[in-house]
């Protein structure tokens, strides 16, 4: 059933204001970096065609405003998301500490089927900045990711294009898996669905 149809993956990028969400998206989609981006108001949006496991998919990437009060607009953007990238600035500890609230708020508003296993990816951006300015160690970030159910973690520089491709590739791969799972649910009649639910959840948990 899903072999022929072109997949559309919806990806939401969240994180504090100024951590580099717009830059990451533009680096990934357009291979460009600019110091002249406007502050994102509301949300912005780009798409990219990618090949994942020999399957062509369209990634619909939503770049959102970082100020906390804009979360009240979130529900319009979060619904139907296949993956959520949580971005922080490795040189700004506050932006790391806020990942918890971004994750919680996302799960609350997006209301995914299986919140325990919804695919997140964490991105620590701006690793190009000199080491002495760094406020969040890789160890600390990875511990957080592990504690939240083994979230994949990437350290990137949107400015230099370091690791951006890899991070988004994982996003695409995990979104696709999420989408497949959702399709799986809708194919089963009700009584079986419950069984399917647990087995899929388990396998997703192991692979992560």
């Amino acid at each position: 059933m899903r072999g022929g149809r072109k997949a559309l993956l919806k990806v939401i990028i969240l994180g504090d204001s100024g951590v580099g969400k717009t830059s990451l998206m533009n680096q990934y989609v357009n291979n460009k970096f600019s110091t002249q981006y406007k502050a994102t108001i509301g949300a912005d949006f780009l798409t990219k065609e990618v090949l994942v496991e020999e399957r062509s998919v369209t990634m619909q990437i939503w770049d959102t405003a970082g100020q906390e009060r804009f979360q009240s607009l979130g529900v319009a953007f979060y619904r139907g998301a296949d993956c959520c990238a949580l971005v922080y600035d490795v040189n700004n500890v506050k932006s790391f500490e806020n990942l918890d609230s971004w994750r919680d708020e996302f799960l609350l508003q997006a209301n995914p089927r299986d919140p325990e296993n919804f695919p997140f990816v964490v991105i620590g951006n701006k690793v190009d900045v000199e080491e002495s300015k760094r406020q969040v160690t890789q160890k600390r970030a990875m511990a957080w990711c592990q504690q939240k159910g083994n979230i994949p973690y990437f350290e990137t520089s949107a400015k230099e294009g370091i690791n951006v491709e890899q991070a988004f590739f994982t996003i695409a791969k995990n979104s696709l898996k999420q989408e497949a799972d959702v399709e799986l649910y809708s194919d089963f009649p009700d009584p079986i669905k419950i069984d399917g639910d647990t087995s899929v959840a388990k396998s997703a948990g192991c692979e992560c």
């Binding site: 204001s17 100024g18 110091t35 002249q36 981006y37 406007k38 502050a39 100020q67």
Partner: peptide
């Protein structure tokens, strides 16, 4: 946040 935003307001 204001400081971050002033350089991202009408940058052109």
């Amino acid at each position: 946040i204001i400081q971050r935003d002033v350089s991202r307001t009408f940058p052109k």
